[in-house]
Design a protein around this nucleic acid. Structure first.
Lengths: 144, 144
DNA sequence: GTAATTCCTATTAAATTGATAGGAATAATA
DNA sequence: TATTATTCCTATCAATTTAATAGGAATTAC
């Protein structure tokens, strides 16, 4: 299951894209429009800022903004920050590899083999989708 | 993350395939060889039996066996039984669809769009992988 | 009738997730 | 400078899910 954290994070990012302008977008505005518990959202946006996807401005008229253009923000990055490793098992993770304690021979492990394929297929999606794609409405996608 | 339940289940199924013969395979043998807590494994195999993937024989010399040929057992079926819906969010699930309470318009929801792609890519893997594929060693896979 | 097995239900422990609380730090502006 | 609006930080809590264990009933082979 996709965590609420990731779901909220994706919605928030999309909202920020669609609020395009120079002014930073406030947590309260996102929370209200996207129906996300504000305090929870705060912590999510903070994570996204710490990872470098978002920038922020403190104090009155503060808020969050994108550090890169939407089309430069890959889902690989966003998903790793919000949801964690893309691989479903550490032994096929590219960025967070860990050997299984059980599993004598990785090369002949049925789980390993299957999960490597799943990882590749997910990576293929995330590498070819940017935040710009997410913020397109379906009708726009059809035209595209 | 892949649950231990699924991981153990896949390993157990592979073990049963590789123990090919007419005799049913006992939980104790699988547990020992695959390093799986026996009682936990019992409940997993029971689930697989109830779903129709495995058959069982009770009593002395009892055990579990496949109900179909390995190449007829698709990963879509196994994964749904063990891990649950393949979709990461209910609103893109083919078999367990549920509308989101939030989300006014599904067609323009960024999460929906992305997760539908991920679901399709995972389905593509699971529909094209059978238990027979899992039980091939890597070297055999290369030759294939 | 005994031993070996699956089957069933209940319980527990640990980990994770989702959410809340309270206030510190910072910045704009009146 | 005082006030207000905001992000930032840490801690905590509640709910859910996962992983595992326990005990014994039912069934079958011999």
């Amino acid at each position: 299951m996709l965590s609420k954290k990731t779901k909220y994070g994706l919605k928030a990012l999309t909202f920020i894209v669609n609020s395009e302008g120079e002014k930073p977008v406030q947590v309260s505005a996102i929370a209200k429009n996207e129906q996300i518990p504000q305090k929870f959202l705060e912590s999510i946006l903070l994570t996204l800022r710490k990872s470098g996807v978002l920038g922020s401005k403190k104090g009155k008229h503060g808020g969050y903004y994108l550090r890169k253009e939407p089309h430069e923000i890959l889902m690989t990055e966003v998903m790793r920050v919000l949801e964690g490793p893309i691989a479903m098992v550490p032994c096929v993770s590219l960025n967070y590899y860990e050997k299984c304690d059980d599993c004598v021979d990785e090369e002949s492990c049925s789980v390993h083999m299957l999960m490597a394929k799943v990882r590749d297929s997910a990576l293929n999606v995330f590498r070819n989708t940017t935040l710009a794609d997410l913020s397109l409405k379906k009708t726009e996608n059809i035209l595209k």
